[in-house]
Design a protein around this nucleic acid. Sequence first.
DNA 1: AGATGGATTTTC
DNA 2: AAAATCCATCTC
Length: 215
Amino acid sequence: MPRLGPAFFDRPTLAVARDLLGALLVRRIGRGLVAGRIVEVEAYVGEDDLACHASRGKPGKKGRAAGLYVGPGHYYVYMIYGMYWCLNVVTEREGFPAAVLVRALEPVGGVHLMRRRRRAARRERDLANGPGRLCQALSIDGRFHGKSVESRSLWLERGDPIPEKEVIRCPRIGVDYAGNSKDLPWRFYVRTSECVSVRDPEAERLPDQSARSMA
DNA sequence: AGATGGATTTTC
DNA sequence: AAAATCCATCTC
């Protein structure tokens, strides 16, 4: 499958997020390959999004959030709760802070390598069904922060498209602190996947999820 | 339900 | 300088 280049990410963040569903995230570790199909993502868009790191601290391109301004197709990797890494891909034009957080993968290849790094996971579906877990499973850490998606050891490939009917759109996880941004429906996941980290029963009951405005 | 634990941000 | 907070996960 062809790799996704920077141009793929140089688009509105919600469209990128939606289209990343079904794509493959591939990691090369030495001679081994570890790969997963993306089944859950979240969009973080601009300084006005109170859940986006760019809304914190001093406005502008300083500190941690600087990594969100670097232009489309770069990884933004940060540590959370002092223990776990989270992988984002920066979107939109240079100078505008936005990214897509990759929240869950369905294991596709190198499952034995994932198990080695995810001893706590008993079932295969638990190997990468969370933003911290997938970084453990694929051995992704701060070394990838700021790197390009054209990296030789971590990249994305186009996968089979996910039909609109299978896409669930709902509010993001863990952003209750984000005031008026907390209910924005900027999380997308694949309804039929067993590897979604947190399901949203209410959203799954509603018809025609992602046909709503992307604005 | 509670513990974890480092970087970042906010408050004093 | 100190306290609070965090895009989470594991164990109990």
